[in-house]
């Protein structure tokens, strides 16, 4: 059912865990659909220097989280935003059609974490002005 790469990432997921003092957090999905993903990013000089995740979900959701976080580590914000779910799925050696939404979830998680980072940056700027 799953590719070898998916199973490898599921068995030994990379970048697992809650991050202390993240620059941005993205929370997507909901338990109703059987998956929920939290992505944490640390950003320095517009580069994602660290990333981690916590996922409640199936094999595909955990593997997608692991692969996505691998792919954006060390990338600039713009590069990370350009990442598509298709790329995640391709890098995983494909996902069953019914599981494609797991890769979408990971893409959305990254986007939300970046959005959250930008919002926090904005707030910081505003605070400085005051």
């Amino acid at each position: 059912m799953y590719s070898q790469t998916v199973m490898d990432h599921f068995r030994n997921p990379h970048n697992v865990g809650k991050m202390e003092n993240p620059s941005g957090v993205g929370k997507v999905g909901n338990p109703q659909c059987g998956d929920e993903m939290i992505i944490y990013i640390k950003v320095e000089n517009n580069v994602i220097t660290d990333v981690s995740f916590e996922t409640f979900g199936c094999v595909a959701a955990i593997a997608s989280s692991s692969m996505t976080t691998d792919l954006i580590k060390g990338k600039t914000i713009e590069e990370a935003l350009a990442l598509s779910n298709k790329e995640v799925a391709d890098k995983l050696g494909g996902l069953p059609p019914l599981k494609m939404h797991c890769s979408v979830l990971a893409e959305d998680g990254i986007k939300m974490a970046i959005e959250d980072y930008r919002k926090r940056e904005e707030e910081k700027k505003n605070e400085q002005k005051i």
Binding site: Y2, M7, F10, F56, C58, V59, A61
Partner: peptide, 14 residues
């Protein structure tokens, strides 16, 4: 509670 069945299934399958 807190984890999903399919990931348990595949892990036990290993």
């Amino acid at each position: 509670v807190g984890i999903e069945g399919e990931s348990i299934l595949f892990s036990l399958d290993e």
